[in-house]
Amino acid sequence: MFLENYIETVDFSDKLPCIEYKQEKHYLVLKSAVKDKELTYLISRVADFKDKSAFSDLFKLVGPRIKGYLMKLGSSDIVAEDLLQEVMLTVWRRSETFDRAKAAVSTWLFTIARNKRIDMLRKEIRPQLDPLDPMLTPNQEDSADNVYSSKQESLKITNAIEQLPDEQAVLIKMTYYEDKSHSNIANELRMPLGTVKSRIRLASNRLRKLLEGQIYD
């Protein structure tokens, strides 16, 4: 995932003796959980010590992927580069607020990239939940709530979407890969808005079963 293109050239073993590497074909592959631990470690180095070397490693690991994501959503190379800079500067500034117990690294990076993209491209405010709002209700008591990595990283989202009926999969792809609102989707597919919404609802239920039902697969 994040690491597969990079691990060939950099050896983290001296920095991270706790992590086991597995030789596979011509490059080293890290297990999902290990990968997340790796990125979490680098972010903690940035948070605690303003470690530019760790930050550079983090950039090399996630930068090309973030750029690819931004371009998939329609940004040109130039715009994606600008956005990537903004994302990484925000990562530097917000590293202290990253909480592994609350979100996977990939989720955290996604929300930063999502917000920067909206800020730059739409030039409109995007109201966001304030995580320190005194009105915030406590999270539901569910022991599984804070365990993100193991269960959800077992199945790739691309594979999960493939398992949806075609008519639902296309709507999820347009939502996440093409940044289309429900009314844009309805116009483009010449489909009633109500149908778009009901199919997305069915797809969301199915995705939850697919992604959360898989444990240590």
């Binding site: 995932m1 994040f2 293109n5 930068g63 090309p64 992927r65 973030i66 750029k67 690819g68 994501y69 371009m71 998939k72 190379d77 994606a80 580069e81 990537l84 979100a103 996977a104 690294v105 990939s106 989720t107 955290w108 990076l109 996604f110 929300t111 990239a113 999502r114 939940l129 304030d130 709002d133 009105m135 915030l136 209700t137 406590p138 999270n139 539901q140 569910d142 709530d145 993100y148 959800q152 790739k156 989202i157 691309t158 996440y176 890969y177 969301s204 995705l207 939850r208 992604l211 959360e212």
Partner: peptide, 30 residues
């Protein structure tokens, strides 16, 4: 979602999907 933990949790799940989408995007050299 400030006052509704049920919907907040659901948003987190959809953001996790976004994280996976990001993770599985093709790398483009910077």
């Amino acid at each position: 979602i400030t006052v509704c933990s049920k919907c907040r949790k659901e948003v987190s799940f959809y953001e996790d999907i976004g994280g996976k989408v990001l993770e599985e995007s093709l790398s483009v050299e910077t």
